[in-house]
Write a protein that binds this DNA or RNA. Structure first.
Lengths: 257, 257
DNA sequence: CGCATAGTTGAGTGCTATCAAATTACGTGG
DNA sequence: CCACGTAATTTGATAGCACTCAACTATGCG
Protein backbone atom coordinates (compact mmCIF):
# COMPACT_ATOMS: atom_id res chain seq x y z
CA UNK A 1 0.00 0.00 0.00
CA UNK A 2 2.33 2.74 -1.14
CA UNK A 3 1.52 6.41 -1.26
CA UNK A 4 0.47 7.22 -4.80
CA UNK A 5 1.62 9.74 -7.28
CA UNK A 6 1.57 7.45 -10.19
CA UNK A 7 3.69 8.05 -13.25
CA UNK A 8 1.83 8.72 -16.48
CA UNK A 9 0.84 5.31 -17.79
CA UNK A 10 1.92 4.06 -21.17
CA UNK A 11 -0.67 3.99 -23.90
CA UNK A 12 -3.67 6.23 -24.27
CA UNK A 13 -4.81 8.49 -21.47
CA UNK A 14 -8.57 8.23 -21.33
CA UNK A 15 -10.25 11.56 -20.55
CA UNK A 16 -12.80 9.82 -18.39
CA UNK A 17 -13.56 13.10 -16.69
CA UNK A 18 -16.05 13.94 -19.39
CA UNK A 19 -17.66 10.56 -19.69
CA UNK A 20 -18.56 9.86 -16.09
CA UNK A 21 -22.20 10.65 -15.33
CA UNK A 22 -21.48 11.26 -11.68
CA UNK A 23 -18.90 13.83 -12.56
CA UNK A 24 -21.13 16.42 -14.16
CA UNK A 25 -20.39 19.90 -12.92
CA UNK A 26 -17.52 18.99 -10.62
CA UNK A 27 -14.01 20.32 -10.84
CA UNK A 28 -11.67 18.96 -13.46
CA UNK A 29 -9.22 16.36 -12.35
CA UNK A 30 -6.25 14.62 -13.86
CA UNK A 31 -7.81 11.28 -14.58
CA UNK A 32 -4.87 10.19 -16.64
CA UNK A 33 -2.80 9.41 -13.59
CA UNK A 34 -4.85 6.86 -11.79
CA UNK A 35 -8.34 5.54 -12.09
CA UNK A 36 -8.66 5.57 -8.34
CA UNK A 37 -8.63 9.30 -8.34
CA UNK A 38 -11.22 9.26 -11.06
CA UNK A 39 -13.44 6.90 -9.16
CA UNK A 40 -13.12 9.01 -6.05
CA UNK A 41 -13.91 12.26 -7.82
CA UNK A 42 -16.81 10.79 -9.70
CA UNK A 43 -18.15 9.54 -6.40
CA UNK A 44 -18.14 13.11 -5.15
CA UNK A 45 -15.56 12.60 -2.43
CA UNK A 46 -13.64 15.44 -0.87
CA UNK A 47 -9.93 15.87 -1.64
CA UNK A 48 -9.09 14.42 1.77
CA UNK A 49 -11.22 11.36 1.13
CA UNK A 50 -9.71 10.95 -2.30
CA UNK A 51 -6.24 10.95 -0.78
CA UNK A 52 -7.32 8.28 1.62
CA UNK A 53 -8.45 6.14 -1.28
CA UNK A 54 -5.19 6.63 -3.08
CA UNK A 55 -3.23 5.63 -0.02
CA UNK A 56 -4.97 2.30 -0.11
CA UNK A 57 -4.03 1.63 -3.70
CA UNK A 58 -0.97 0.08 -5.28
CA UNK A 59 -0.06 0.05 -8.91
CA UNK A 60 0.81 -2.67 -11.32
CA UNK A 61 2.26 -3.07 -14.80
CA UNK A 62 1.64 -6.03 -17.07
CA UNK A 63 3.43 -7.09 -20.24
CA UNK A 64 1.42 -8.54 -23.14
CA UNK A 65 0.03 -11.98 -22.30
CA UNK A 66 1.12 -11.67 -18.69
CA UNK A 67 -1.26 -13.23 -16.19
CA UNK A 68 -2.93 -11.03 -13.60
CA UNK A 69 -4.94 -13.70 -11.81
CA UNK A 70 -5.61 -17.33 -12.41
CA UNK A 71 -8.89 -19.21 -12.27
CA UNK A 72 -9.38 -20.63 -8.78
CA UNK A 73 -7.07 -18.23 -6.95
CA UNK A 74 -8.42 -16.56 -3.84
CA UNK A 75 -9.84 -13.12 -4.58
CA UNK A 76 -7.80 -10.88 -2.30
CA UNK A 77 -7.48 -7.86 -4.56
CA UNK A 78 -9.67 -5.77 -6.78
CA UNK A 79 -8.31 -3.73 -9.66
CA UNK A 80 -9.01 -0.73 -11.78
CA UNK A 81 -7.61 -0.66 -15.30
CA UNK A 82 -5.61 2.48 -16.04
CA UNK A 83 -4.29 1.73 -19.50
CA UNK A 84 -4.04 -1.15 -21.96
CA UNK A 85 -6.41 -4.01 -22.63
CA UNK A 86 -6.98 -7.26 -20.75
CA UNK A 87 -9.07 -10.34 -21.38
CA UNK A 88 -11.00 -12.56 -18.98
CA UNK A 89 -10.67 -16.19 -19.93
CA UNK A 90 -12.49 -19.33 -18.94
CA UNK A 91 -10.61 -22.53 -19.76
CA UNK A 92 -12.18 -25.97 -19.89
CA UNK A 93 -10.23 -29.14 -19.24
CA UNK A 94 -10.47 -30.31 -22.84
CA UNK A 95 -9.00 -27.08 -24.15
CA UNK A 96 -12.19 -25.25 -24.98
CA UNK A 97 -11.62 -21.60 -24.26
CA UNK A 98 -14.00 -18.73 -23.75
CA UNK A 99 -12.92 -15.12 -23.59
CA UNK A 100 -15.83 -13.78 -21.57
CA UNK A 101 -14.83 -10.17 -21.94
CA UNK A 102 -12.24 -7.49 -22.54
CA UNK A 103 -11.22 -4.90 -20.01
CA UNK A 104 -10.43 -1.36 -21.10
CA UNK A 105 -9.16 1.69 -19.19
CA UNK A 106 -11.66 2.68 -16.52
CA UNK A 107 -12.98 -0.85 -16.10
CA UNK A 108 -13.17 -2.32 -12.65
CA UNK A 109 -12.11 -5.86 -11.81
CA UNK A 110 -13.82 -7.26 -8.77
CA UNK A 111 -17.57 -7.15 -9.36
CA UNK A 112 -18.06 -10.63 -8.00
CA UNK A 113 -19.37 -12.29 -4.91
CA UNK A 114 -17.19 -15.33 -5.23
CA UNK A 115 -14.31 -16.02 -2.83
CA UNK A 116 -12.15 -17.24 -5.70
CA UNK A 117 -11.58 -15.96 -9.19
CA UNK A 118 -13.79 -17.69 -11.73
CA UNK A 119 -11.60 -16.58 -14.62
CA UNK A 120 -8.05 -16.10 -15.75
CA UNK A 121 -7.29 -12.46 -16.36
CA UNK A 122 -4.50 -11.78 -18.81
CA UNK A 123 -3.03 -8.69 -20.42
CA UNK A 124 -3.71 -8.45 -24.13
CA UNK A 125 -1.41 -5.48 -24.54
CA UNK A 126 0.93 -3.82 -22.05
CA UNK A 127 -1.39 -2.63 -19.30
CA UNK A 128 -1.37 -0.67 -16.08
CA UNK A 129 -3.71 -1.18 -13.15
CA UNK A 130 -4.45 0.13 -9.71
CA UNK A 131 -4.76 -2.51 -7.05
CA UNK A 132 -6.70 -2.51 -3.78
CA UNK A 133 -7.04 -5.25 -1.28
CA UNK A 134 -10.63 -6.46 -0.98
CA UNK A 135 -10.40 -5.60 2.69
CA UNK A 136 -9.42 -1.99 2.05
CA UNK A 137 -12.09 -1.76 -0.61
CA UNK A 138 -14.69 -2.99 1.83
CA UNK A 139 -13.62 -0.40 4.34
CA UNK A 140 -13.74 2.32 1.73
CA UNK A 141 -17.18 1.19 0.69
CA UNK A 142 -18.44 1.32 4.24
CA UNK A 143 -16.78 4.64 4.83
CA UNK A 144 -17.95 6.25 1.61
CA UNK A 145 -21.42 5.14 0.59
CA UNK A 146 -20.94 6.94 -2.69
CA UNK A 147 -18.44 4.28 -3.68
CA UNK A 148 -20.90 1.55 -2.99
CA UNK A 149 -23.49 3.31 -5.10
CA UNK A 150 -20.93 3.65 -7.86
CA UNK A 151 -20.12 -0.03 -7.75
CA UNK A 152 -23.79 -0.88 -7.93
CA UNK A 153 -24.12 1.28 -11.02
CA UNK A 154 -21.16 -0.46 -12.57
CA UNK A 155 -22.57 -3.86 -11.73
CA UNK A 156 -25.87 -2.82 -13.32
CA UNK A 157 -24.05 -1.66 -16.41
CA UNK A 158 -22.23 -4.95 -16.70
CA UNK A 159 -25.44 -6.90 -16.23
CA UNK A 160 -27.14 -4.90 -18.96
CA UNK A 161 -24.20 -5.41 -21.31
CA UNK A 162 -24.06 -9.09 -20.50
CA UNK A 163 -27.68 -9.58 -21.51
CA UNK A 164 -26.89 -8.20 -24.97
CA UNK A 165 -23.83 -10.39 -25.21
CA UNK A 166 -25.90 -13.45 -24.39
CA UNK A 167 -28.30 -12.73 -27.23
CA UNK A 168 -25.39 -12.35 -29.62
CA UNK A 169 -23.89 -15.68 -28.58
CA UNK A 170 -27.14 -17.57 -28.63
CA UNK A 171 -28.97 -16.18 -31.60
CA UNK A 172 -26.71 -14.36 -34.02
CA UNK A 173 -24.84 -15.56 -37.08
CA UNK A 174 -21.05 -15.19 -37.17
CA UNK A 175 -21.19 -12.04 -39.29
CA UNK A 176 -23.78 -10.51 -36.99
CA UNK A 177 -21.73 -11.36 -33.94
CA UNK A 178 -18.67 -9.74 -35.43
CA UNK A 179 -20.60 -6.62 -36.41
CA UNK A 180 -22.02 -6.49 -32.91
CA UNK A 181 -18.56 -6.88 -31.42
CA UNK A 182 -17.02 -4.15 -33.56
CA UNK A 183 -19.80 -1.70 -32.77
CA UNK A 184 -19.67 -2.50 -29.08
CA UNK A 185 -15.92 -2.04 -28.93
CA UNK A 186 -16.20 1.13 -30.92
CA UNK A 187 -18.81 2.44 -28.49
CA UNK A 188 -16.53 1.75 -25.56
CA UNK A 189 -13.68 3.54 -27.27
CA UNK A 190 -16.00 6.44 -27.93
CA UNK A 191 -16.80 6.64 -24.24
CA UNK A 192 -13.05 6.79 -23.63
CA UNK A 193 -12.87 9.76 -25.95
CA UNK A 194 -11.61 7.92 -29.01
CA UNK A 195 -14.60 8.60 -31.20
CA UNK A 196 -13.24 7.84 -34.64
CA UNK A 197 -14.47 5.56 -37.41
CA UNK A 198 -11.05 3.93 -37.23
CA UNK A 199 -11.06 1.14 -34.70
CA UNK A 200 -7.88 -0.42 -33.35
CA UNK A 201 -8.22 -4.04 -32.29
CA UNK A 202 -5.75 -4.72 -29.50
CA UNK A 203 -6.58 -8.43 -29.48
CA UNK A 204 -5.81 -11.11 -32.03
CA UNK A 205 -8.29 -13.08 -34.10
CA UNK A 206 -8.21 -16.05 -31.77
CA UNK A 207 -9.24 -13.85 -28.84
CA UNK A 208 -12.10 -12.50 -30.90
CA UNK A 209 -13.06 -16.00 -31.95
CA UNK A 210 -13.06 -17.26 -28.39
CA UNK A 211 -15.06 -14.24 -27.33
CA UNK A 212 -17.74 -14.79 -29.96
CA UNK A 213 -17.94 -18.55 -29.60
CA UNK A 214 -16.48 -19.13 -33.06
CA UNK A 215 -13.29 -20.46 -34.60
CA UNK A 216 -10.47 -18.29 -35.90
CA UNK A 217 -11.30 -19.33 -39.44
CA UNK A 218 -14.93 -18.30 -39.15
CA UNK A 219 -13.95 -14.95 -37.67
CA UNK A 220 -11.56 -14.38 -40.53
CA UNK A 221 -14.21 -15.26 -43.06
CA UNK A 222 -16.65 -12.93 -41.34
CA UNK A 223 -14.17 -10.07 -41.58
CA UNK A 224 -13.86 -10.83 -45.26
CA UNK A 225 -17.62 -10.80 -45.72
CA UNK A 226 -18.01 -7.46 -43.96
CA UNK A 227 -15.22 -6.11 -46.15
CA UNK A 228 -16.84 -7.42 -49.32
CA UNK A 229 -20.11 -5.78 -48.32
CA UNK A 230 -18.27 -2.47 -47.92
CA UNK A 231 -19.28 -2.26 -44.28
CA UNK A 232 -15.71 -2.15 -43.04
CA UNK A 233 -12.24 -1.63 -44.45
CA UNK A 234 -9.17 -3.34 -43.09
CA UNK A 235 -5.95 -1.36 -42.86
CA UNK A 236 -3.58 -4.04 -41.77
CA UNK A 237 -4.98 -6.59 -39.37
CA UNK A 238 -5.38 -4.35 -36.36
CA UNK A 239 -7.07 -1.35 -37.87
CA UNK A 240 -10.70 -1.64 -38.83
CA UNK A 241 -12.49 1.27 -40.42
CA UNK A 242 -16.21 1.27 -39.81
CA UNK A 243 -17.51 2.47 -43.17
CA UNK A 244 -21.23 2.20 -42.52
CA UNK A 245 -22.35 2.09 -38.91
CA UNK A 246 -25.91 2.35 -40.09
CA UNK A 247 -25.89 -0.91 -41.95
CA UNK A 248 -23.63 -2.57 -39.40
CA UNK A 249 -26.21 -1.71 -36.79
CA UNK A 250 -28.97 -3.03 -39.00
CA UNK A 251 -27.19 -6.38 -39.06
CA UNK A 252 -27.25 -6.44 -35.29
CA UNK A 253 -30.43 -4.73 -34.28
CA UNK A 254 -32.78 -6.93 -36.14
CA UNK A 255 -34.27 -6.65 -32.69
CA UNK A 256 -36.10 -4.61 -30.08
CA UNK A 257 -39.71 -4.70 -31.13
CA UNK B 1 -48.83 1.60 -2.18
CA UNK B 2 -51.16 -0.26 0.09
CA UNK B 3 -50.42 -1.43 3.59
CA UNK B 4 -49.35 -5.04 3.44
CA UNK B 5 -50.46 -8.19 5.12
CA UNK B 6 -50.32 -10.33 2.10
CA UNK B 7 -52.40 -13.44 1.79
CA UNK B 8 -50.51 -16.71 1.61
CA UNK B 9 -49.39 -16.93 -2.00
CA UNK B 10 -50.33 -19.82 -4.25
CA UNK B 11 -47.69 -22.39 -4.98
CA UNK B 12 -44.73 -23.34 -2.86
CA UNK B 13 -43.68 -21.25 0.11
CA UNK B 14 -39.94 -20.94 0.01
CA UNK B 15 -38.33 -21.11 3.45
CA UNK B 16 -35.80 -18.52 2.47
CA UNK B 17 -35.14 -17.76 6.10
CA UNK B 18 -32.62 -20.52 6.26
CA UNK B 19 -30.94 -19.85 2.96
CA UNK B 20 -30.11 -16.18 3.34
CA UNK B 21 -26.53 -15.59 4.48
CA UNK B 22 -27.38 -12.24 6.06
CA UNK B 23 -30.00 -13.85 8.22
CA UNK B 24 -27.80 -16.08 10.38
CA UNK B 25 -28.65 -15.82 14.03
CA UNK B 26 -31.58 -13.46 13.70
CA UNK B 27 -35.11 -14.10 14.76
CA UNK B 28 -37.33 -16.32 12.64
CA UNK B 29 -39.72 -14.60 10.35
CA UNK B 30 -42.59 -15.66 8.16
CA UNK B 31 -40.97 -15.37 4.77
CA UNK B 32 -43.84 -17.08 3.09
CA UNK B 33 -45.95 -13.96 3.15
CA UNK B 34 -43.86 -11.50 1.26
CA UNK B 35 -40.33 -11.36 0.00
CA UNK B 36 -40.09 -7.78 1.10
CA UNK B 37 -40.22 -8.84 4.68
CA UNK B 38 -37.58 -11.39 3.96
CA UNK B 39 -35.33 -8.88 2.29
CA UNK B 40 -35.78 -6.50 5.18
CA UNK B 41 -35.03 -9.09 7.82
CA UNK B 42 -32.06 -10.42 5.95
CA UNK B 43 -30.76 -6.89 5.71
CA UNK B 44 -30.87 -6.71 9.51
CA UNK B 45 -33.49 -4.01 9.70
CA UNK B 46 -35.50 -3.34 12.81
CA UNK B 47 -39.19 -4.29 12.88
CA UNK B 48 -40.08 -0.61 12.44
CA UNK B 49 -37.88 -0.34 9.40
CA UNK B 50 -39.28 -3.52 8.01
CA UNK B 51 -42.78 -2.14 8.32
CA UNK B 52 -41.69 0.96 6.48
CA UNK B 53 -40.48 -1.20 3.63
CA UNK B 54 -43.70 -3.11 3.52
CA UNK B 55 -45.70 0.08 3.39
CA UNK B 56 -43.90 0.97 0.18
CA UNK B 57 -44.76 -2.30 -1.50
CA UNK B 58 -47.74 -3.40 -3.52
CA UNK B 59 -48.59 -6.87 -4.60
CA UNK B 60 -49.34 -8.43 -7.92
CA UNK B 61 -50.69 -11.68 -9.33
CA UNK B 62 -49.98 -12.99 -12.80
CA UNK B 63 -51.68 -15.75 -14.77
CA UNK B 64 -49.59 -18.08 -16.95
CA UNK B 65 -48.14 -16.27 -19.97
CA UNK B 66 -49.31 -12.93 -18.68
CA UNK B 67 -46.97 -10.06 -19.39
CA UNK B 68 -45.41 -8.18 -16.50
CA UNK B 69 -43.40 -5.67 -18.50
CA UNK B 70 -42.66 -5.19 -22.16
CA UNK B 71 -39.35 -4.48 -23.83
CA UNK B 72 -38.91 -0.73 -24.20
CA UNK B 73 -41.29 0.29 -21.42
CA UNK B 74 -40.06 2.83 -18.89
CA UNK B 75 -38.69 1.17 -15.78
CA UNK B 76 -40.79 2.68 -13.04
CA UNK B 77 -41.11 -0.35 -10.78
CA UNK B 78 -38.91 -3.04 -9.36
CA UNK B 79 -40.24 -6.39 -8.24
CA UNK B 80 -39.55 -9.28 -5.95
CA UNK B 81 -40.87 -12.69 -6.91
CA UNK B 82 -42.91 -14.33 -4.18
CA UNK B 83 -44.14 -17.45 -5.93
CA UNK B 84 -44.27 -18.96 -9.38
CA UNK B 85 -41.84 -18.76 -12.27
CA UNK B 86 -41.26 -16.03 -14.83
CA UNK B 87 -39.09 -15.70 -17.90
CA UNK B 88 -37.17 -12.76 -19.30
CA UNK B 89 -37.41 -12.64 -23.07
CA UNK B 90 -35.57 -10.78 -25.75
CA UNK B 91 -37.35 -10.68 -29.09
CA UNK B 92 -35.72 -9.82 -32.39
CA UNK B 93 -37.61 -8.33 -35.31
CA UNK B 94 -37.27 -11.42 -37.44
CA UNK B 95 -38.77 -13.62 -34.74
CA UNK B 96 -35.60 -14.90 -33.16
CA UNK B 97 -36.25 -15.24 -29.46
CA UNK B 98 -33.95 -15.53 -26.51
CA UNK B 99 -35.09 -16.41 -23.02
CA UNK B 100 -32.26 -14.81 -21.10
CA UNK B 101 -33.32 -16.21 -17.76
CA UNK B 102 -35.96 -17.59 -15.43
CA UNK B 103 -37.08 -15.92 -12.24
CA UNK B 104 -37.91 -17.98 -9.18
CA UNK B 105 -39.28 -17.04 -5.74
CA UNK B 106 -36.86 -14.75 -3.98
CA UNK B 107 -35.48 -13.31 -7.20
CA UNK B 108 -35.34 -9.59 -7.64
CA UNK B 109 -36.36 -7.77 -10.82
CA UNK B 110 -34.69 -4.45 -11.25
CA UNK B 111 -30.95 -4.98 -11.22
CA UNK B 112 -30.40 -2.70 -14.17
CA UNK B 113 -29.11 0.76 -14.85
CA UNK B 114 -31.26 1.29 -17.90
CA UNK B 115 -34.17 3.73 -17.94
CA UNK B 116 -36.25 1.30 -19.99
CA UNK B 117 -36.77 -2.42 -19.78
CA UNK B 118 -34.47 -4.33 -22.10
CA UNK B 119 -36.60 -7.43 -21.92
CA UNK B 120 -40.14 -8.70 -21.86
CA UNK B 121 -40.94 -10.34 -18.57
CA UNK B 122 -43.71 -12.93 -18.68
CA UNK B 123 -45.18 -15.36 -16.21
CA UNK B 124 -44.44 -18.99 -17.01
CA UNK B 125 -46.79 -20.25 -14.33
CA UNK B 126 -49.20 -18.37 -12.10
CA UNK B 127 -46.97 -16.05 -10.10
CA UNK B 128 -47.09 -13.52 -7.31
CA UNK B 129 -44.81 -10.55 -6.90
CA UNK B 130 -44.15 -7.61 -4.65
CA UNK B 131 -43.87 -4.31 -6.43
CA UNK B 132 -42.01 -1.14 -5.43
CA UNK B 133 -41.68 2.06 -7.35
CA UNK B 134 -38.08 2.73 -8.33
CA UNK B 135 -38.41 6.00 -6.48
CA UNK B 136 -39.44 4.34 -3.22
CA UNK B 137 -36.72 1.77 -3.69
CA UNK B 138 -34.14 4.48 -4.13
CA UNK B 139 -35.30 6.14 -0.95
CA UNK B 140 -35.18 2.87 0.92
CA UNK B 141 -31.69 2.26 -0.38
CA UNK B 142 -30.51 5.62 0.78
CA UNK B 143 -32.22 5.25 4.13
CA UNK B 144 -31.02 1.70 4.78
CA UNK B 145 -27.51 1.11 3.47
CA UNK B 146 -27.97 -2.56 4.27
CA UNK B 147 -30.38 -2.80 1.39
CA UNK B 148 -27.90 -1.30 -0.98
CA UNK B 149 -25.30 -3.80 0.17
CA UNK B 150 -27.79 -6.58 -0.36
CA UNK B 151 -28.56 -5.45 -3.87
CA UNK B 152 -24.87 -5.30 -4.65
CA UNK B 153 -24.49 -8.88 -3.46
CA UNK B 154 -27.40 -9.92 -5.63
CA UNK B 155 -25.94 -8.12 -8.61
CA UNK B 156 -22.62 -9.86 -7.99
CA UNK B 157 -24.39 -13.18 -7.81
CA UNK B 158 -26.15 -12.56 -11.09
CA UNK B 159 -22.92 -11.49 -12.74
CA UNK B 160 -21.18 -14.65 -11.57
CA UNK B 161 -24.05 -16.80 -12.80
CA UNK B 162 -24.14 -14.98 -16.10
CA UNK B 163 -20.49 -15.75 -16.77
CA UNK B 164 -21.23 -19.47 -16.45
CA UNK B 165 -24.24 -19.12 -18.69
CA UNK B 166 -22.14 -17.43 -21.34
CA UNK B 167 -19.67 -20.31 -21.40
CA UNK B 168 -22.54 -22.76 -21.79
CA UNK B 169 -23.99 -20.85 -24.72
CA UNK B 170 -20.71 -20.29 -26.48
CA UNK B 171 -18.83 -23.51 -25.94
CA UNK B 172 -21.05 -26.39 -24.91
CA UNK B 173 -22.84 -29.03 -26.96
CA UNK B 174 -26.63 -29.25 -26.76
CA UNK B 175 -26.50 -32.18 -24.32
CA UNK B 176 -24.00 -30.38 -22.13
CA UNK B 177 -26.11 -27.24 -22.14
CA UNK B 178 -29.16 -29.17 -21.08
CA UNK B 179 -27.27 -30.98 -18.32
CA UNK B 180 -25.94 -27.63 -17.15
CA UNK B 181 -29.43 -26.16 -17.20
CA UNK B 182 -30.97 -29.00 -15.23
CA UNK B 183 -28.26 -28.90 -12.58
CA UNK B 184 -28.47 -25.15 -12.31
CA UNK B 185 -32.23 -25.20 -11.92
CA UNK B 186 -31.95 -28.00 -9.42
CA UNK B 187 -29.44 -26.00 -7.40
CA UNK B 188 -31.77 -23.03 -7.31
CA UNK B 189 -34.61 -25.24 -6.15
CA UNK B 190 -32.32 -26.66 -3.48
CA UNK B 191 -31.61 -23.15 -2.22
CA UNK B 192 -35.37 -22.69 -1.98
CA UNK B 193 -35.55 -25.76 0.19
CA UNK B 194 -36.70 -28.20 -2.48
CA UNK B 195 -33.67 -30.44 -2.37
CA UNK B 196 -34.96 -33.53 -4.13
CA UNK B 197 -33.63 -35.51 -7.08
CA UNK B 198 -37.02 -34.92 -8.68
CA UNK B 199 -37.02 -31.72 -10.63
CA UNK B 200 -40.20 -30.02 -11.82
CA UNK B 201 -39.81 -27.99 -14.98
CA UNK B 202 -42.34 -25.17 -14.92
CA UNK B 203 -41.42 -24.06 -18.44
CA UNK B 204 -42.07 -25.74 -21.76
CA UNK B 205 -39.52 -27.15 -24.17
CA UNK B 206 -39.57 -24.07 -26.36
CA UNK B 207 -38.66 -21.86 -23.40
CA UNK B 208 -35.79 -24.19 -22.60
CA UNK B 209 -34.73 -24.18 -26.23
CA UNK B 210 -34.79 -20.40 -26.44
CA UNK B 211 -32.88 -20.21 -23.18
CA UNK B 212 -30.14 -22.53 -24.39
CA UNK B 213 -29.85 -21.12 -27.88
CA UNK B 214 -31.22 -24.28 -29.46
CA UNK B 215 -34.35 -25.43 -31.27
CA UNK B 216 -37.18 -27.34 -29.65
CA UNK B 217 -36.23 -30.43 -31.62
CA UNK B 218 -32.64 -30.37 -30.45
CA UNK B 219 -33.73 -29.94 -26.84
CA UNK B 220 -36.06 -32.88 -27.17
CA UNK B 221 -33.31 -35.03 -28.67
CA UNK B 222 -30.98 -33.97 -25.87
CA UNK B 223 -33.52 -35.06 -23.26
CA UNK B 224 -33.71 -38.39 -25.04
CA UNK B 225 -29.93 -38.77 -25.04
CA UNK B 226 -29.67 -38.02 -21.32
CA UNK B 227 -32.42 -40.54 -20.72
CA UNK B 228 -30.71 -43.19 -22.84
CA UNK B 229 -27.48 -42.65 -20.88
CA UNK B 230 -29.40 -43.25 -17.65
CA UNK B 231 -28.51 -39.78 -16.40
CA UNK B 232 -32.11 -38.70 -16.03
CA UNK B 233 -35.55 -40.26 -16.03
CA UNK B 234 -38.61 -38.52 -17.37
CA UNK B 235 -41.89 -38.92 -15.48
CA UNK B 236 -44.23 -37.15 -17.82
CA UNK B 237 -42.85 -34.10 -19.55
CA UNK B 238 -42.55 -31.84 -16.53
CA UNK B 239 -40.88 -34.10 -14.04
CA UNK B 240 -37.23 -34.89 -14.47
CA UNK B 241 -35.46 -37.22 -12.10
CA UNK B 242 -31.74 -36.57 -11.81
CA UNK B 243 -30.38 -40.10 -11.59
CA UNK B 244 -26.68 -39.33 -11.57
CA UNK B 245 -25.64 -35.83 -10.62
CA UNK B 246 -22.04 -36.97 -10.61
CA UNK B 247 -21.96 -37.83 -14.27
CA UNK B 248 -24.25 -34.95 -15.19
CA UNK B 249 -21.75 -32.64 -13.55
CA UNK B 250 -18.92 -34.33 -15.39
CA UNK B 251 -20.63 -33.47 -18.66
CA UNK B 252 -20.66 -29.85 -17.67
CA UNK B 253 -17.53 -29.32 -15.66
CA UNK B 254 -15.08 -30.42 -18.24
CA UNK B 255 -13.72 -27.17 -16.98
CA UNK B 256 -12.02 -25.21 -14.20
CA UNK B 257 -8.37 -26.13 -14.49
C1' DC C 1 -64.69 -37.93 -27.45
C1' DG C 2 -62.47 -34.79 -30.51
C1' DC C 3 -59.76 -31.08 -31.21
C1' DA C 4 -55.73 -28.20 -30.28
C1' DT C 5 -51.36 -27.74 -28.41
C1' DA C 6 -46.95 -29.61 -27.01
C1' DG C 7 -43.49 -32.86 -27.54
C1' DT C 8 -40.91 -36.55 -30.00
C1' DT C 9 -38.89 -38.74 -33.88
C1' DG C 10 -37.23 -38.94 -38.71
C1' DA C 11 -34.98 -37.32 -43.21
C1' DG C 12 -32.35 -34.00 -45.55
C1' DT C 13 -29.92 -29.62 -45.99
C1' DG C 14 -26.81 -25.98 -44.74
C1' DC C 15 -23.67 -23.84 -41.93
C1' DT C 16 -19.75 -23.84 -39.19
C1' DA C 17 -15.93 -26.65 -37.36
C1' DT C 18 -12.14 -29.20 -38.85
C1' DC C 19 -8.18 -30.17 -41.46
C1' DA C 20 -4.83 -28.46 -44.70
C1' DA C 21 -2.31 -25.10 -47.27
C1' DA C 22 -1.02 -20.59 -48.74
C1' DT C 23 -0.18 -15.96 -47.54
C1' DT C 24 0.83 -12.16 -44.69
C1' DA C 25 2.75 -9.86 -40.74
C1' DC C 26 6.33 -9.50 -37.44
C1' DG C 27 10.55 -9.80 -34.60
C1' DT C 28 15.37 -10.96 -34.79
C1' DG C 29 19.82 -10.87 -36.21
C1' DG C 30 22.78 -10.13 -39.88
C1' DC D 1 17.66 -1.87 -44.08
C1' DC D 2 16.99 -6.39 -45.45
C1' DA D 3 16.77 -11.61 -45.02
C1' DC D 4 15.07 -15.02 -42.44
C1' DG D 5 12.10 -17.79 -39.40
C1' DT D 6 8.11 -17.98 -36.78
C1' DA D 7 3.59 -16.90 -35.70
C1' DA D 8 -0.78 -15.05 -37.18
C1' DT D 9 -4.14 -14.69 -40.57
C1' DT D 10 -6.54 -15.89 -44.67
C1' DT D 11 -8.28 -19.06 -47.97
C1' DG D 12 -9.75 -23.65 -49.57
C1' DA D 13 -11.90 -28.43 -49.20
C1' DT D 14 -14.46 -31.57 -46.47
C1' DA D 15 -17.31 -33.46 -42.90
C1' DG D 16 -20.32 -33.41 -38.88
C1' DC D 17 -23.79 -31.54 -36.30
C1' DA D 18 -27.72 -28.78 -35.48
C1' DC D 19 -31.45 -26.59 -37.95
C1' DT D 20 -35.39 -27.11 -41.04
C1' DC D 21 -39.27 -29.35 -42.65
C1' DA D 22 -42.42 -33.01 -41.95
C1' DA D 23 -44.88 -36.68 -39.76
C1' DC D 24 -46.26 -38.80 -35.77
C1' DT D 25 -47.49 -39.23 -30.73
C1' DA D 26 -48.86 -37.60 -26.30
C1' DT D 27 -51.26 -34.40 -23.40
C1' DG D 28 -54.77 -31.44 -21.95
C1' DC D 29 -59.17 -29.21 -22.33
C1' DG D 30 -63.91 -28.25 -23.74
Amino acid sequence: MSRLRIAPPPGLLPPLTEACPGHAGRQKVDCGTCQVRHLAVCSALSPEETEEMERAAGQLQLAPNELLVRQGQARIHVYSVTSGTLRTVRLMADGRRQVTGFLLPGDFIGLSGSAVHALDIEAVTASALCRFSQQDMRQLRTRFPHIERKMLERAFGELDANREYVVALARMSPVERLADFLLRLSARHARLGQDTPMLVLPMGRSDIADHLGLTVETVSRSFTKLRQQQLIALHGVQNVELLDRERLGALVHQGEA
